[in-house]
Amino acid sequence: MTIAFESLDPRYTLPQPGLSQAWLSEAISEVLVKIDAMLPRFALTFPAASADGGIYPEVGKVDWTEGFWTGMLWLAWEVTGDNKYREVAESLLDSFEERLNKRIKVDTHDLGFLYLLSCVNAWKLTGDLRARSLGLRAAELLYQRFDTTTGVIQAWGDLNDPARQGRMIIDCNLNIPLLFWAADETGNVSYREAATRHLAQAARYLVREDASTFHTYYMDIHTGQPLRGDTHQGFSDDSCWARGQAWGIYGFALGFSHTGDITQPELARRLAHYFLNRLPDDYICYWDLIFSEQDHAYRDTSAAAIAACGLAELLKHLPLTDPLRPAYNTAIGLMLRNLRTHYFAHQQDGLLREGVYNFGRNMGINEPNLWGDYFYFEALIRLSRIWTPYFC
């Protein structure tokens, strides 16, 4: 299948002022103030996936998102060196260990989001052997979700549930780095082979010919043949869910870091053009890319933050002479500038207003959400210094 390569919207080729170090420093300081305000409430537990009326409820080990809170704490520690962030992040390791011991909500591919941002980075940053062990246990659970016939990691649910078997989703692009890390740590080539095969199947079936993406895709677990694509969170099976497209940009850009496959950054580039060419005037996407200004649809600031990180990752793998590097830098700057200027959650919990969790299920609509907060912070860190991402 040939994937379309759209020309980039001329808006991104116009000269734009960059984000200065002073601007980035001020933006990071704003983030730290918000994290400090939340820290007393979430030292022993976690914010929910999305806010309710602008306030994050407290939750335990119930969702796929708890790692984003510890991820923000580790980012804050890296930026400041203040051990109050490290101490809370390390204390929450007990929760991630209990989750594994009692098998609480671990029937999911989201083990990457959970354990990369809590345990794997704790090991990388501090040499915590317990954190390393927890990360490896989570990686083994993720590997067990890999089906050798289809070549994909089952997204959710009981592996014996016929309704869920053979289902992959675009979000998994950001979870499989857990397997690449575990392969490097242990020498177990099966982890790497599973992650590489899944990434190839995602590129083959989740990406449409026009470089838009399905949210989900089903494979026949008996024959390995493709069945159909649909959506779980987008507007329709034929539309392009904005956050899914952002997961694709970031995940395929990361794919090169882990596999050396030169087709991965080029695929990320194609997805990025599709995404950027459908942004409204303030460069913050609607929750599905099918919408335009006259639809008055909700934005999804979290998708914009993920896409900014994905573009920054893509830039790492492009030659310095690539003619579109300035355009991608402009796009990142425009999105981050407008997120901070128009969508920062000054009067709410969290960092970004106007995220959308799951529109069809009436979940977290027009609210801050935890992954949007994390990736906004990550994007600022990426631009402000030389930094090794937690997904690498």
Rank of each mutant, 00 (worst) to 15 (best):
G166V: 08
Q264Y: 15
V59M: 12
D282G: 09
D220R: 09
L179S: 02
G151W: 09
T321D: 11
G255D: 01
L24Y: 00
L383V: 02
L114Q: 14
L136W: 04
G251R: 04
G234W: 10
V88G: 06
G151D: 06
C240F: 07
S384L: 02
G60C: 04
W156H: 15
M168P: 01
R385T: 08
D52R: 15
Y218R: 14
F180C: 03
D158S: 12
P226Y: 13
V356C: 12
Y376W: 07
A49D: 12
D52S: 14
T213F: 11
A304Q: 04
M168Y: 05
N188T: 03
L14F: 05
C309W: 01
S91L: 05
G364R: 06
Y357L: 10
W387I: 02
Q225F: 06
N277F: 04
G234N: 10
L73C: 05
E66M: 15
S118H: 07
W69H: 08
E30C: 14
R270I: 01
W23H: 14
A51Q: 06
L289Y: 04
T341C: 09
T70L: 09
R382I: 00
P177E: 03
S50G: 10
T196S: 14
G151L: 09
S118Y: 09
R340A: 10
A312M: 07
A307P: 02
K61W: 11
C172F: 08
